[in-house]
Amino acid sequence: MPFAAVTYDIKPGFEAELAEIFGNFRRVKSDKVASETGEEAGRILSTAVFIRDDTLVRVIEYQGDLEAVARHMASQPGVREVEQKLKPYLSRPRETDTVEGFVATFQRSLLRTVAQISVRDLPTGA
């Protein structure tokens, strides 16, 4: 299963406030991600958020098409709520009020995957 990591440029010194925002995150109703035509395009398996100083990173474990995952996230009420609550703490604004803006910001904020290793990649019975 691939992972994606997205960065947020934040003002330092607000770790507790940011932890509270993500701690109160409303989960999505389903892990299934639909394409623009309504067909299943993937799944969001897990997420994690990390923070240090002026950098916040959201890691997403997913299956399927990453752009469809970003589009799905853009339409989720919990994600939209978090994006709104983050605005006062951002050192660099994010244009996430529309699906297109969210997807463009997601792609610009995406970290390059350098390595990814999982026990799930081992052959069965190894």
Rank of each mutant, 00 (worst) to 15 (best):
A74H: 12
K87M: 03
V28C: 06
E15W: 01
F50C: 11
D54M: 03
P88D: 04
P93W: 00
I10E: 06
F22V: 02
E36Y: 01
R108A: 07
L18I: 15
I51T: 13
P88M: 05
S46Q: 11
G42V: 10
V33Q: 09
K85S: 09
L111Q: 15
T47I: 09
T47W: 11
P77A: 04
K11E: 01
P93V: 03
V59S: 15
R26P: 04
H72L: 04
L86Q: 11
P93L: 04
T113R: 12
A19M: 06
L86A: 11
R43W: 02
P93S: 13
V33D: 07
T47S: 15
G42E: 11
V57C: 08
V99H: 03
K29Q: 09
G13Q: 06
T7R: 13
Y8M: 05
I10N: 06
A68T: 03
T55H: 09
E100K: 13
E61F: 11
L66V: 06
R112W: 11
D53R: 15
E100P: 07
G101D: 14
T7D: 11
Y8Q: 03
V69S: 04
R92I: 09
T98V: 08
G23Y: 00
V59I: 12
I60W: 12
R52L: 00
E36T: 13
A68D: 08
D54L: 02
Y62A: 08
L18K: 15
R108K: 15
T105N: 13
R43G: 04
D53C: 08
K87L: 05
I60K: 02
V28Q: 07
A19I: 04
F50G: 13
I10L: 07
A34I: 00
D54I: 05
L56C: 12
R108C: 00
T98C: 10
V114P: 03
E40L: 02
A70P: 08
S75P: 01
K87A: 06
I21Q: 12
V49S: 08
R108M: 04
I10F: 14
A41I: 01
G42S: 08
Q63L: 10
P88V: 09
R71E: 09
V6C: 01
R52T: 02
F14P: 00
I60Y: 15
A19H: 06
L90G: 08
A16D: 12
G13E: 01
I51R: 04
R94M: 08
T37N: 12
A115K: 13
Y8C: 02
R112I: 14
T55E: 14
T113A: 11
F3I: 11
A4Q: 10
I60P: 01
D97Q: 13
D31F: 04
A34S: 07
V79C: 10
T96G: 01
A48P: 07
R94Q: 03
